[in-house]
Amino acid sequence: MSTDHDDVRDLLAAWACGALTPADERTVPAHLAECESCAAEAERLRETVRLLDGAPRPPLGNSAAGNPDGVLALALRARPAAPRVAAHAAPYAAAVAGLQALLGELDGPGPWGTPVVHDWDVHATVAHLIAADEPLARRLGLAARVPESRIAEGAGWEEAWTERTADVIAYEQGRTPEETVAAWTAQAGALLATPEARDPERAAHATTLMGVRLPIADHFVVRAFEAWIHTDDIGRALGFAVPPPLDPHLWQLVRLAVRILGLALGPTAPPILFTVTGAEPGTQWVLGSEDEPVQTELVLDPVDFCLLVGGRYAPDEVPRGAVGDDAAISDVLERAASLAWL
């Protein structure tokens, strides 16, 4: 490997995660000893990885295997108690740590081939997360970790996204699960080390990713949403109960989902008083028209609402409390489910 400054900077996230090749393990430290800017960036990345790793975890023995409380404790211990990122990026840091806790306990090659969701096994699901995080990573100036795809010029974002996801999964399935996890962890660490993860002012700038224009801060919340959803997918596939996000993080997901749902319904839909249960202030919203009296109410649990928006509940199956116009209630539930891009 060349000791060129730019080449080494591309390897700093891998260095922070302990994922360098033997050759790079010799050259990167030598460059860090001579380059003050790279050394400072490397230390920031290493600190992020420490936060993601959380407290030391005991091995998953027979008493914890298949025990929801055992996995719950592991995931909670892996969450950073006080992440040194801004509030908008904290849910993503915690979600990454939770998935790391779960993946770190997989024993041998067998679990990696377990079917999870869509046509993905555990290995492919982690590969998918590399592709899912990539648009935000690229927008924030990070290099892709998988060879570029040949996307047809003029392709819409959905077509380009589908092609890129398939390419990333195919590439990663040619590598070991450990290499895929290292690549995903390094990319997550690099995202959390960006100035936008630490500075709310920088994160307030809006950008369009995956067909949705949101502030960068909200795109970090979307990344948290997806990381948690797929952690839950993997946990269910392997018979482990995965805890929901910490309450402050869960409500960040809820509030963003409600805002997007309100935009999807538009101002002419029949008005509905939408309540998400829990102690968080501001858990009621009027969705739809502001010019008509509210005669319909819908009540959902916050986790169930997130699973509905994440595509893990069918609209007619999600547990709910409802009174009023059945057609309007069905429309809200169907619109919520249609938001799933995970």
Rank of each mutant, 00 (worst) to 15 (best):
I234R: 09
I260T: 15
L263C: 03
R223E: 05
W251N: 03
F225P: 07
F240C: 09
R255N: 06
H249N: 12
Q252M: 13
L256P: 10
F225T: 14
A237V: 08
G266Y: 04
D232E: 13
L253K: 06
H219K: 10
L263G: 14
T231W: 04
D232G: 09
G239I: 13
P245C: 09
Q252H: 01
A264F: 02
F225N: 10
W251V: 10
P270G: 02
A269D: 03
A264H: 07
A224Y: 14
L261T: 06
A257S: 15
I260L: 15
L238Q: 09
R223D: 07
D247Q: 07
H230W: 02
G235S: 08
H249S: 11
D247C: 00
T268L: 05
A224K: 14
V221Y: 05
I234D: 01
P243A: 08
V222F: 13
P271V: 02
V254N: 09
P245N: 11
R259W: 00
R223W: 05
L261P: 01
T231L: 10
V221G: 01
V242P: 07
A257G: 15
A237D: 08
A269Q: 01
E226K: 13
I229L: 15
A227H: 15
W228L: 05
T231Y: 04
P244S: 15
I260S: 14
D232S: 12
G266C: 05
P267Q: 14
G235L: 04
V258P: 00
A227I: 07
H230N: 12
L253F: 06
T268I: 03
W228Q: 08
P244M: 15
R223C: 13
L263H: 08
H230S: 07
L265R: 11
A269S: 07
P248L: 00
L263N: 09
V258S: 00
E226P: 14
I234E: 05
H249A: 11
V222S: 12
L256S: 04
W251G: 05
G262P: 11
A269K: 03
V258D: 03
D233C: 01
R223L: 13
A224R: 12
V258C: 04
A269Y: 01
L263Y: 03
G239W: 10
L261C: 13
V254E: 12
L265N: 02
L246F: 00
G262K: 06
L263M: 09
I229M: 12
I234K: 09
P267R: 12
H249V: 03
H249E: 10
R255P: 01
A269L: 02
L238I: 03
G239R: 08
A264Y: 01
G262W: 02
L238W: 12
L261R: 10
P248I: 00
